[in-house]
Nucleic acid binder design. Sequence first.
RNA 1: GACCGGUUCGUCUAGGGGUCUAGGACACCGCCCUUUCACGGCGGCAACACGGGUUCAAAUCCCGUACCGGUUACCA
Length: 497
Amino acid sequence: MTTRVRFAPSPTGYLHIGSARTALFNYLFARNTKGKFLIRVEDTDRQRSTEESLSSILDGLKWLGFAPDEEIVFQSNNADKHRLAAFKLLEEGKAYRDFTPKEDRSEKDIKRDIADRARKQGDKKDMRDNKYRELTKAESDSKAEAGEPFAIRLKVAETGKTSFEDAVYGPQERDYADIEDMVLLRSDGHPLYNLAVVCDDLEMRITHVIRGQDHLTNTHKQILIYEALGEEKPVFAHLPLILAPGGKKLSKRAHGEIVSMDLYREKGFIADAFRNFLALLGWSPKDENEILNHDQLIESFSFDGINRSNAAFNFDANNPKRWTDDKALWMNAEYIRTMPLDELIPLVREELRGEKLWREEYDEEEKRWFEETIDLIRERFYTLKDFSEQGRAFFSEDFDYDPKAINKNLKKHPDLREWLPELAERLEGLDDFTHDGIFAAVKSLCADKETKVGVILNGARVLLTGQAVGPSMVSAIEQLGKEKTVMRLKSQVAWNE
RNA sequence: GACCGGUUCGUCUAGGGGUCUAGGACACCGCCCUUUCACGGCGGCAACACGGGUUCAAAUCCCGUACCGGUUACCA
C-alpha cells in the first residue's frame, strides 16, 4: 500500500514555523516511504480565510521545496459531502438533531470564556445531558419539518473508551464520559472541523495523519466519527510543539515576525539549511551527524526519531545578533561556507540583484573573478544578506564604514593615517600583485615602521571593506585588485567619520 | 476545574534497568594555528524536576507531588 499524507493549513495567517515543520515531517515521511505528499487547504472558516494568507503559505511551502504530488484540495469544495455524511449518521441514529438555540459567542476571548466555564463545571459535567438526545425520530422529524433550526451532534455512547496507537506517543485512551456529543453540522448547515477532516482524509485516502500534538485530544473525537461512519482509521502520528523561549506559546502577537517563515527567506536563509534546522527540532537522526541535506533527511527520517517533549525555539528579541535561534544561524553559515559554489552563486545573484549590486559581467567576462570572490568572502558569512551588506565593498564603491571597525582598528593607531597611503604607494609600484607579493610589501612596511602585521592589515581592512572582520586580508587585497586597493587606501574619508 | 501529554547541560537532543564518573550539536569560555577577525584545530564549563517505592542495580520501571504544554466552540 502506498502511503498518503497531507499537510492541512488553514489560510488564516502566515506560514507559522511550527506548521512549516509539520509540513516538513509529512513531506519527509512521504518521500521516505515512496508515498504521496498532499496539501489540503482548510478554508471552511470563511470569515478568517484570505487569499493573501493562502498565497503566503503556498509560497513558503514552495520555498522549502514541498510541492504536492496531486492537485491541492480545498476543503470548502467538499462541504456537500460533509453534510451528506452528517445526515447519513442522523438517518442511522448515530447522530441527533439538537434544537438548542445557537449561543452568541463574543468574538473576544472565546478561549478564555470556554476555559472559565469549564473550570466552573469541574468534573461534574455530564456530557450526555442534552435534552434533544433522546427525542424520538418522529418528534425530531416534525420539529425539523416545522422549520425549527437544528445542529447535528454525534451521539457518543454512554460508556466505553476510544483508543488508538499513536506512532509517536504510543497507546492513547480516552473515556467516552470525557467526550461531549460534538457538533457535526452547524444549524446553518456548515460542516465543522472534526467532521470535515475525517471525511476529507477518507476521501483523499490518507494513510497517515501527521500533525501537531495540539490535535491529540481531537483525535479521539475523530475516531468516534470514523467508527460511526464504519470506516477504517488511518495511523496517527502527533508531533511535539515548538514553543517560545521559556516554554510559552509561540505566537506572532507576542513574538512578532520571528514565527513567520517569510522572515527567514527575507533575512537570507538558505532553504536547505532551514529545513535541516527545522528537522532537528523534535527529531534526531540515528547517528551524530546533524548536517543533513534534503536527500539525507529523507533517507534517515522515521517516526521513532521523534521526541515527545515540546521544543523551545531559542532567541533573544533584545539582541540583534540573536534575532533567531543560534543553531539556525550557525546551520545557515555552515551551508553557506560548505555548499557547492554553483548552488550558492544563483542565491547570491538573487541577493545582489535585489540590492542593485548585480552586474551582468559577473556571469560573463568577470565570472571567474566573481566566483573567486564569493568563495573567499563566504567563509564567515551567516546569511545571504551578508553578501550585500558586509560584502558590499567587493561589488560597489558605495559602502559604509562600520563605526566600531573605525574606532578599534583605525583611530586607535593614528599613525595609520600616514602608513596606509604609504602602503598604497608601495602596492601601486608592485609588479607582482599576487598574494605573496602583496604580503611581502605589507611585511616590509611593518618592518620599516616597527609595527605588527595585524595593525596594518586590520587598518587596511577598514579602508578597503568597511569591516572589522572578514577573510584573509591579503587574499582580499589581491581579489579587490590594485586599482581599487590603492584608491581606497589613499582615501581619508573614513578618518573623518 | 476535568481530561490528555510532557519534564536529561542555557537551547536542540542521545540514551528506555548494569557498558552513564550521562554522549553529541549550538551558545559560552580557554588554548593553539595564523597576518587581523565571527574560519579551522584542541580543550573546558554545564543536565537526569522533586519525593517515595520496586530491584543486587534506576536517567531508564511504578506511585505521588510540582511545574510546563494541549484540549475542553454551532473555530480550525
